[in-house]
Amino acid sequence: MRVAFVGKGGAGKSSLAGAFARLLARTGERVLALDSDPMPGLAFALGTPGSDAGLPDDVVEEYEEDGRRRYRLRAGLTGSGVIERYAVQGPDGVRFLQLGKARGPRWDNTPAHFGFQRVLDDLPGEGWSIVGDLPGGTRQPFMTWGRYASTFLVVVEPGPASLLTGRRLTRLAAMAGSPRVLAVANKVHGSDDARRVAEGTGLPVVGAVPFDPGVAAAARAGVPLLDQAPDGPAAAAVRCLVEALRSREAA
């Protein structure tokens, strides 16, 4: 399963992605959790020991093709090998990698960017599931950053700004080859809210996560939702979301 969480800033992408990755891993899948948001959040939502798990620049080597500079994995490296070596070990066996953390205004991220892409290009068929947390907003999520994903989950709160972002993402997806895009209604207060998200975004709603004070408490404490409020309604809803997507994959 290869999913990417997108949506407006603050909609709850990282919190849900962190819980989703761990619950998916508990079903027995090998899970790589990817944070491509330069503002780190997924590490806290997963509960990994460090928040910075980048790839060293020398994961890729430069070569020339038709006079153009290109990058490939260094000789002897494979996608799985890179994960074994560089990805941080998180709870429930989830492996964690981060791309795009701002390391200074003049930091050149070209080698790391291509390293990330080459690792992901090399993974399919090796039994890895990928759960990605993309930057908030509408900055090209369906192209470079999220192209590993076969399903995009748009996290949407039932408020106008979040709904508007959902609609914009829907429109961008249609212009980017129409990948599979589904909505997850978040912080809902009743069944009516999920319907508002469906109508407001025009997307099928694959899950509805109730408003749960445990989510805010977890974020404030820097602790994963699954450790802070494992029996709360939000964790239960993410469990349902994992099952819903697994059924879709199986179908």
């Binding site: 070209t110 930057p135 509408t138 090209q140 369906f142 192209m143 470079t144 961008l172 212009m175 980017a176």
Partner: peptide, 10 residues
């Protein structure tokens, strides 16, 4: 505002 998806670095 970004209304069109484009390849390349964001």
């Amino acid at each position: 505002a970004i209304q069109n998806p484009e390849p390349g670095c964001p």
